[in-house]
């Protein structure tokens, strides 16, 4: 099956079997290992990527369903070698321990901030409700998202 899409801002033409998910396409087809396989059931959120700016679970969505759409993975967050403000904020505030949940956290947060540049704590918690961290808890993650919000004081 031929697939044409936009991946991290660049046109991408590739092939994938019909039973592949977006996660299979990214990791096995395109060798982008930033997006993680966690639960495989859409619960843990570590495979979250953006499709046309909205968060999706790469482990649940068939690759065929992103044909023609614009995907953003964690590899696509940096611009010209500079980290996204969210990434800098996570790093500065220690919002990661083992780091396995971080790609999904970043993209779920990215979708939130694009929609709502000045979120409240509750907005952040709701946007990240589907992203599980089993190391540290969520306080520093929520703090990091709030600090990176363009509308934050």
């Amino acid at each position: 099956m031929k697939l044409e899409l936009t991946l991290n801002g660049r046109p991408c033409v590739t092939e994938a079997p019909g039973h592949w998910t977006v996660l299979d396409l990214l990791r096995d087809g395109l060798n982008l290992m930033g997006t993680k396989y966690g639960c495989g059931e859409g619960v843990c959120g570590t495979c979250t990527v953006l499709a046309d700016g909205r968060p999706i679970r790469a482990c649940l969505v068939l690759a065929a369903h992103v044909r023609g759409r614009a995907l953003v993975t964690v590899e696509g967050l940096e611009r010209d070698g500079r980290l996204d403000p969210l990434q800098t904020s996570f790093a500065e505030r220690g919002a990661a321990q083992c780091g396995f949940c971080t790609p999904g956290m970043l993209l779920a947060a990215k979708a939130l901030l694009a929609q709502n540049p000045a979120p409240t704590v509750d907005d952040v918690r709701e946007a990240l409700a589907g992203n599980l961290c089993r190391c540290t808890g969520y306080t520093k993650i929520v703090d990091a998202v709030l600090a990176a919000a363009p509308g934050a004081r």
């Binding site: 959120g45 499709a51 909205r54 999706i56 679970r57 779920a108 409700a129 589907g130």
Partner: peptide
């Protein structure tokens, strides 16, 4: 229903 990413799909 569930979480934002699930509702999107």
């Amino acid at each position: 229903v569930a979480t934002p990413a699930i509702r999107v799909s």
